[in-house]
Every structure is written in structure tokens, then in C-alpha cells.
Design a protein around this nucleic acid. Structure first.
Lengths: 144, 144
DNA sequence: TTTAATTAGGATGCCTTTGTCTTAATTAAA
DNA sequence: TTTAATTAAGACAAAGGCATCCTAATTAAA
């Protein structure tokens, strides 16, 4: 469904959010240990999230990655997915047709529409705060 | 969502079904032209569908691929997807956790469940006959 | 029985994604 | 101002998906 990069990006964002609530910046090393991902690759993905203004980076000693506390509840899952995987996941044709719309649908167009809108809905209505709270309360996990 | 191989496999199956209704066998060349796919690669995918008993192949002169007319309405989209992509699409964890279930859920587990069950539902309740009729009636297309 | 047409299958190559490594740029603190 | 810690960025390597090619196996018809 999502690319590996996107999976890592979502989990990393959640971990950064949790720490940002406590005013703590985190490094790619801490992040990758917590979400069980390759460190250097994770760092690359963080760069993309920084470029897209989803997370913030502070260079130099005592630096790291953080998210503005007040912003956490406004960051939707869809933004993270968009920054890394783009919008093909809920825009592209299920059977790979170049043109696929009401006028020229692929054979599964109508049936797929429902699934895709459910997915879009879910990505649009889930924010980082909700996900972070799930982890903090111990009712969800970032690895294993 | 689906792999390229799976997209080709679905479209090929639909085209074979249409022709089987008219008692006609089709070759990888005809198929790939009709669904706009690479011929040799499509042939490989057809082999997988034959191995899984979804389509039937007849070797030698006047051979080709076909589907038992009476079977067409019983072949679910889920069978084709399963034969090519496996079941990870509606079984795997959305964030790639090794273990992700009610006892040990990833942060998006509950939200994802809905999307996945909608997808599974769609794949289980769509059969080749429906898709073939859409094409025959001109209300859906296999390419462009 | 030979031939021509056809699917099966293995070997190979290319491209994208995934992942690593090294160096540059930046910055807080000593 | 120097140092140590840190992110940024580009080059490189590995793996997997996508695609091609060649040969073997099969079979209907001549």
C-alpha cells in the first residue's frame, strides 16, 4: 500500500511528535532505533519531511528533529503520505490506465472509487496528535 | 495498490473471458495488444494464472488461452490478485509491523481495518463476468 | 512423420526502490 | 575561534520488480 519510505516517515513523525511534546529533539539514530528502520535511509526521509515543512530540523550541536507543539494536531496523515509517496495512491487508476474517469473508466473504476475514497477519508481525518496519543497511552506500538 | 503484473493479469483475464464467451482462444500477442502491455511479460503472468487454474492454456498450433465459459462468473477478482500479488494487500500491516493485530496494533491499525475490509469486500464480490460485460457493453475500457 | 504454430521456462538486463557511506555545511558551547 | 555534534546532500551499492530474449516442449494439420 505505502512504500517503505512512507511507512518509516509516518512512524518517524509519530516518534518526533511524542518527543516534541516533552520539548525534546531527536536524532535519526534515536528515531531509527525506536521505529526499527535503517538509520541513513530514515535520515533521507526526514530531509523530505523537512523540505515539505512537516517537521523541523535544527542543525549543529544540541540539534535534532522536532515538530512545533501547536502544529502536531494539525498535521494530517495525508500530508505525510503526500510528501513521500505523492497522491497516486488515491488518484491513480486501479488498473494503471493512463486516462480513467467517469467518461472513460477502467473495468473496476466504480468499485475502486469506494475503496479509494475510504482511504482518502482515513488519511484526511487522522492527525499526528491522535497517533502520538495512541503510542503514549500504550495502546499502539511503533515496532515489532 | 496492485503490482504492474497484477494489473496486466486482471486485464488479460477480462480479455480472455470475453473471447472465451465466443469460443475463441487468444495468444499473448493479441492480449498484450488489447490491454497495452509488454507481450513477453504478459505471457509470464499468464503462466502464473494457468498454474493457479484460473485460466486454461492449450499448447501447439491453434492453441492459446481460454477460460471455461461456465467458470467465468465464478472467478473472483480476489483469486486473480491472490495468484499474482498474494494476500499482503489485505493482510499486511499498513505501517509494515511484523506483528500487527488487536493485541499489538500499529498506530493506524483500527483506521486501516476499515479500508482493508472495504478492499477485500470489493475483491471478493467482483467476478470476471461482471467485468467482461462492462467491456462488451462499451461502458468500460481495457486501455488508454 | 514432418512442419509450423504455439505455450513453458530459464537466463539475462534494466530501472526503481531501498539502503549505505562519505563529505560538506551548520551551530552551540567551551 | 576552535571544537564537537549535528543535519544536508550526493555518490554509490544491493535487491526486487519489470521487461526481454532465446530455447525447449507440445500439438494440430499437412
Amino acid at each position: 500500500m505505502f512504500s517503505k519510505a512512507c511507512e518509516y516517515g509516518i512512524k518517524a513523525s509519530i516518534f518526533i511528535a511524542i518527543n516534541s511534546y516533552e520539548g525534546k529533539r531527536v536524532s535519526p539514530k534515536e528515531i531509527s532505533e525506536e521505529i526499527d528502520s535503517p538509520t541513513a535511509f530514515t535520515a533521507k526521509i526526514l530531509q523530505a519531511l523537512v523540505r515539505d515543512n512537516i517537521i523541523n530540523s535544527v542543525k549543529g550541536a544540541y540539534g535534532g528533529f522536532e515538530i512545533d507543539k501547536n502544529k502536531i494536531s494539525t498535521i494530517k496523515l495525508s500530508q505525510i503520505v503526500n510528501a513521500i509517496d505523492g497522491d497516486k495512491i488515491y488518484k491513480g487508476c486501479g488498473l494503471g490506465l493512463h486516462t480513467c474517469d467517469e467518461d472513460h473508466p477502467c473495468p473496476v473504476h466504480d468499485k475502486f472509487k469506494i475503496v479509494r475514497s475510504e482511504l482518502r477519508n482515513m488519511l484526511e481525518n487522522t492527525n499526528l496528535e491522535q497517533l502520538a496519543l495512541n503510542i503514549k497511552s500504550g495502546s499502539a506500538f511503533l515496532k515489532i
